[in-house]
Amino acid sequence: MSSPIVSITAPANPVEDFLRTDRMPHIWCPGCGIGTTVNCFTRALLESNTDLNKLSIVSGIGCTGRVAGYTNLDSFHTTHGRAIPFATGLKLASPDMTVVVYSGDGDLFAIGGNHLIHAARRNIDLKVICVNNLTYAMTGGQTGPATPLDVITATAPYGTYDPAFNLPYLVEAAGAVFVARWTTFHVKQLARSMAEMFKKKGFCFIEVVSPCPTLYQRRNKMGDGLDTMKFYKEMSKTKHGAPTNEVGLTKSGEIIVGKFVDRERPDFATMMNAHLQHELGDQYIQAEGPVCG
């Protein structure tokens, strides 16, 4: 083959330090965007100087659920839909830990939908990254809670007719303090958005629209991963602060991206500590992280 240029002095790919390299190559398909989001995630961690020993990543089940397994961090691959309640327990038991929930649209919004809205309502200090590939990919491309109308899936062979969730709208309504959406085309913005999120306290949510060329795009004759990336480039429109009720996704229409919500609201632990301190005074002993004896 023609020789790619490899400089002897090439510094390591910054992502390497974050990977369990002994598990590469990963299982994601050619043209899948999940790996791209991981690049952004690692750049965001670097940029925000997050203490990696004080950061845990929690995933549910599905293609995106595998992120936890590939990142060389304290990482938890939990059960389907339950990454958020697991992360809730982890965060409350270990208050100084940054807890990132990294999972897919089906995991977070269908089977895990109840947990998501309640964690947002309570404003648990979790950083939720939702890779939205618009389908259940790991199981073969069935209709999911974010699948747009008129899309062919493995369980909607004649097209979908049930409306999808507009994820930012739902999460904002449930109480999230930070809501943004990007696509896998917007790598720099996504990385920046993630870094911003790591510094924000409370329930934060970033949706990343991502290709599933093997199942979603192929079945709907939308080309491969690269075609999808070009589609994102062409159809995306950055509108920071856009009203979330206007950002719902359609099969082939405009994709509104940007930071939609950034507001202040005390998080669960802050509310709990303040309230119990007020009610109990000196009797209140605040939980101070790991105790196990």
């Binding site: 400089s7 043209g31 791209t36």
Partner: peptide
């Protein structure tokens, strides 16, 4: 600029300044 590195979903390429 390492934009290739940011995009690569397979962690197979990255760019760096010389």
């Amino acid at each position: 600029c390492d934009l290739c590195g940011m995009y690569c979903p397979d962690f197979a390429i990255h760019g760096f300044r010389t």
